[in-house]
Write a protein that binds this DNA or RNA. Structure first.
Lengths: 188, 188
DNA sequence: GATGTGGATGACACTTGGTGTCATCACGCT
DNA sequence: AGCGTGATGACACCAAGTGTCATCCACATC
């Protein structure tokens, strides 16, 4: 490794993030991103399936984290509690990358195509969590509903977190959102 | 009206649904759809913003239905109950179009791009429901969470409904999903 | 040190989605 | 008859994405 400049993927990601941020997703061509990274359009598509995917490379890591944490929860834990533990772990991971997360989030918020991609990544995440719950013995409508609820809680809390002026920790916002959900779905 | 064949939009929708169903979304070009409808590619894009949107023309109607129903719920109804009434109304609407819904659903299930579009439509729907709840005096984290939970319940029930062999009514499946969600989020 | 192999990249042509622009056509109105 | 108008067609164009082949250079092997 080293015949060419190293870390082609990372350079492409960096260039894309910069250009999307400066001129917007629509006003950036793949050829421009590649050029900034010292590569060609064709090579961009060897690393990323499409122009949007360059912003979502990390989602596999997040998915793995969620699945690991759900699986690692004590056997006695209720489904929602197992998932809550995973949310905590994810929160810790994002807390260290707040700058990056906010930058990336602004880009996505400005473009519907990117929001679509984000939504399907979250859906995939929910699917993986549901599968992890099933392996814990949770049956199917419950597994899906728990997973989806957890992702919704995460999403709502995350949006508040990146948008807020005061720096409340993400973990706290997640806890609040989860409580809200419980209150809202409580009988009577 | 009448200078050209009437209902250009409807013809395009019908042609698209047929072709997407026969050869798949990817293996259908916009030019082909337009040709089947006796029109040109350019005209297709005058009626639909993109190749996917032709399958989602009805989503505005659904959104309106949800908003109307939520707003019409008795003032005394809890947020989740107001939304549950809307789910019932939506279920009734789909029950009359089961054939079409299933056909359309198979097409979407076979293609990630279409799933992305579906997800953002559902997100938009959730946003509209949340706004309707806010107008009922529900505050913000609760409004969003209630709306998202309702859409999730609807989605889960809907998928079971179109996939099932026995014809349980959608309303019933929605009720069950809602109960499951309540059970899963209950304290202790 | 020559040779060969393989993985990463470039070059290039091509299809298709999507858009801007102008021409055309038939209808209703005056 | 002439005019305006809204829907459509024709055409050119850009950018995303893909298939294919050539190229290049690190590395192992002889």
């Amino acid at each position: 490794m080293g015949r060419w400049q190293p870390d082609a993927r990372g350079r492409l990601q960096e260039a894309a993030l910069t250009l999307y941020g400066e001129r917007g997703f629509d006003n950036t061509t793949v050829a421009e991103i590649a050029e900034h990274a010292g590569l060609t359009k064709r090579t961009f598509f060897r690393y990323f399936a499409d122009k949007r995917e360059v912003l979502f490379w990390g989602s596999a890591v997040l998915e793995e984290l969620f699945v690991t944490e759900v699986s690692a929860a004590p056997e006695s834990a209720a489904p929602l509690d197992a998932v809550a533990a995973a949310l905590d772990a994810a929160a810790a991971m994002f807390e260290e990358r707040r700058e990056f997360a906010a930058r990336r989030r602004r880009i996505i918020a400005a473009n519907p195509e990117l929001q679509e991609r984000e939504l399907i990544k979250l859906a995939s995440l929910a699917g993986a969590v549901a599968e992890a719950l099933r392996r814990r013995g949770v049956d199917d409508p419950a597994a899906i509903l728990t997973a989806e609820a957890a992702i919704t809680v995460f999403r709502v809390a995350f949006e508040r977190w990146v948008d807020q002026a005061d720096h409340q920790p993400l973990q706290r916002l997640i806890g609040e959102s989860l409580e809200q959900l419980r209150a809202v779905t409580a009988h009577r």
